[in-house]
């Protein structure tokens, strides 16, 4: 890889890392406004992280090395995944960076260890959350794969960079396949970021929590990492969705104005999507865990439909 490519990837990753907490805050703010509250400031997630980094860590006596290592593994895997999605500039990277399967499995690696950490302390909440997390993620997996397969079928490549360089040239609004794909992709986004109706990131109630339960035993810097990596993950999926339907602005050249423009464009699009997510969440009620399969079946149906559209046309 030449330095330009490295730089390009670094810019993308840096942008994602930097901007993720903001999107988190934006979603929260939107939800608060919908509920008639004022809500925390938009920059609150950043303050939280800064605060947590300074705090001491508490480990349960039952826990083991898994608990201690997981935040780092999580960060490493998700940061690595951040190298896979172009948000500001597009290049043709080597070594398989941008491979969609690798991308998904890096996220899976993070999830695997997070679930283990949930079990580590011997807490019932942690175990329950791990169990739910793994269950939900396993039934969403076929949908995710089929959605991505639909992308591959339409765009004939397995690399995000290649994909999105194609979508920037195409007119996605005139490509019904891509529009169709965006619906299940949105559902995948909701599920993967643990949002209503699948999960409720706000509560710590036994009945509803999935993702949060695994973090219950975390404190201080570890918790900061877990929260941070979660927000990065959200941004990554948002970026995939955005680049699929609204890729305008992604720059193929590595010049400062172009990069600045496309970064700004991504910020706007991302903000728009985050608000949309907040609105969507506010409009939905949490679905019972065991009612989820029917929701997922719907998503699966959509994704298969997109594949059929491609296959039979």
């Amino acid at each position: 890889m030449n330095p330009a490519q490295v730089l390009c990837i670094a810019i993308n990753a840096g942008l994602i890392l930097g901007i993720s907490p903001f999107f988190m805050g934006l979603v929260k703010k939107t939800k608060a406004l919908c509920q008639g509250r004022r809500g925390p400031p938009l920059m609150q997630p950043y303050y939280n992280l800064a605060k947590l980094l300074k705090k001491e860590r508490v480990y349960s006596g039952n826990s083991s090395v898994i608990m201690k290592a997981t935040p780092y593994i999580n960060m490493a895997a998700i940061t690595a995944a951040a190298l896979f999605i172009p948000v500001a500039c597009i290049t043709t990277p080597a070594y398989g960076l941008g491979n969609i399967i690798l991308f998904l499995y890096l996220l899976a690696l993070a999830k695997f260890f997070m679930a283990l950490a949930g079990l580590d302390a011997g807490s019932t909440f942690g175990g329950m959350s791990s169990s739910r997390e793994m269950s939900i993620s396993s039934i969403i997996e076929p949908i995710t794969i089929v959605v991505f397969a639909a992308l591959v079928y339409t765009l004939h490549t397995v690399n995000f960079y290649d994909m999105f360089s194609q979508t920037t040239i195409m007119q996605p609004f005139f490509q019904p396949e891509l529009l169709f794909i965006s619906i299940p992709l949105f559902i995948v986004l909701i599920v993967e970021t643990a949002r209503v109706p699948v999960d409720n990131p706000e509560t710590h109630l036994e009945l509803t929590m999935v993702h949060e339960g695994m973090l219950l035993e975390y404190s201080g810097r570890d918790l900061a990492f877990m929260e941070f990596s979660n927000s990065i993950k959200q941004t990554l999926f948002m970026a995939v969705l955005i680049n699929t339907i609204l890729p305008w602005g992604l720059s193929a050249e590595l010049t400062a104005p172009a990069i600045l423009f496309s970064a700004a464009a991504f910020l706007v699009k991302g903000a728009f999507l985050a608000v949309l997510m907040g609105l969507f969440e506010s409009a939905q009620a949490k679905v019972r865990l065991f009612a989820l399969p029917s929701l997922f079946a719907l998503a699966f149906f959509f994704s298969i439909l997109t594949v059929c559209l491609e296959v039979f046309s």
């Binding site: 001491e56 508490v58 480990y59 349960s60 302390a121 035993e217 201080g220």
Partner: peptide, 10 residues
């Protein structure tokens, strides 16, 4: 902030 404390599971 490198302090670590052993606690109990909640």
């Amino acid at each position: 902030a490198n302090k670590v404390r052993a606690g109990e599971t909640w």
